[in-house]
Design a protein around this nucleic acid. Structure first.
Lengths: 196, 196
DNA sequence: AGTATAGGTGAACGCTCGTTCACCGTCAAG
DNA sequence: CTTGACGGTGAACGAGCGTTCACCTATACT
């Protein structure tokens, strides 16, 4: 029963992007008194499911919005007990550093297959500053970039080792691309997301 | 200046996992009157940065916590204008379906390299129900699984085509593993996360 | 010079918040 | 049969909420 309450509160949070207030929890779980909510909340807090901030408002704690981080895959799922969770992680915070210049794109084609980027994957790309803008990342040799080359868009390795700049696919079946006129690196790939 | 205010509010949200109330915004940006906050909030809402729910509380809108989703990588960064953003996406919601049975593990080794899973990647694994538990996913042939096989942990393809169950790596240098005694699939890999 | 306008102060409003207290039935242990 | 713990009701509280109104500058445009 108490787990049912917990799930309703978490559902509310996911739906409304904020924690419910006491009267909302009241209606959510079917209580007729706020005091019952207060006692429920106290219990959930002592169980580590919820948290309250200094002003009494509910806030999501680590168990909400974060994913338990176990160890290495070789070590397996250590005993499965709650105590074995090494840490928790917020995926968004892990991946997105500069919010204002990060974009997602879906990958088409297999030109980066040997870099572990497959068709259908999503890539997180951080925009390279076109002066004044937020992200002022510098492109380095070996970065995976999204570039505008001679009028066409593509995602490739950025190569600049010898001073001669070109784009290199991660697929033996394709050839490096040397720009005839234009090569503009628009974004640097900072992450890959795949869902099965 | 207004962008500075916006960032302070977003920082508050990321730090406290909830939106600030008016008096908190007041102190945050240095106002001395709540009315100034009300006017600021109105402007931010009309600019689409914030949202208010029916009870007047601030809630994060799509621009906070979600990442703009552009089109295919082949299509490039279309014009870069705000209008060209097709959609936004919450990475957590996209990846994590069953919160209570999802775990993250860091990948070691290269046995799944041909499946685009490299050493250092994070995998999202959904626990297979050990009866009564939440996730009741069924393991299917071709799934990438985390398994306990003859006492050792590993991540491999699950193969069950011919009725004979075994684990298959995605790396030509390794051989399929047939269980001598025990083969327990503990979790199914539902996603991969890589950060550069 | 005159005047809108944007952006701020300060005080007051009704309402809802989280908290607290007294109280009630159910159920299990002594 | 009594007792205590548990989980709930109902009412009341002060504090803080978002909102609103009157007012005060600067700045920019006639």
């Amino acid at each position: 029963m108490i787990n049912n309450y917990k799930n309703k509160i978490i559902s509310f949070y996911k739906k409304n992007k904020r924690m419910p207030v006491y009267t909302e929890i009241m209606k959510l779980v079917g209580f007729k008194s706020k005091n019952a909510v207060a006692k429920l909340v106290d219990k959930l807090i002592s169980e580590g499911v919820l948290d309250k901030d200094s002003s009494g408002h509910l806030i999501p704690n680590k168990l909400i919005g974060e994913v338990p981080l176990l160890g290495l895959v070789e070590a397996g799922f250590p005993t499965m007990a709650e105590e074995s969770v090494l840490d928790t992680m917020n995926i968004d915070d892990y991946l997105v550093k500069d919010k204002d210049s990060t974009y997602l794109l879906r990958v088409k084609g297999d030109s980066m297959i040997e870099a572990g980027i497959q068709e259908g994957d999503m890539v997180l790309a951080e925009k390279v500053s076109s002066e004044g803008s937020a992200g002022q990342k510098e492109v380095r040799d070996g970065d995976i970039v999204i570039a505008l080359i001679d009028g066409g868009w593509t995602m490739k390795y950025y190569r600049n080792r010898t001073g001669k700049v070109f784009l290199e696919p991660a697929n033996k079946n394709y050839q490096p691309i040397y720009p005839e006129n234009e090569l503009e690196v628009v974004a640097i790939v900072k992450g890959v997301i795949r869902k099965y």
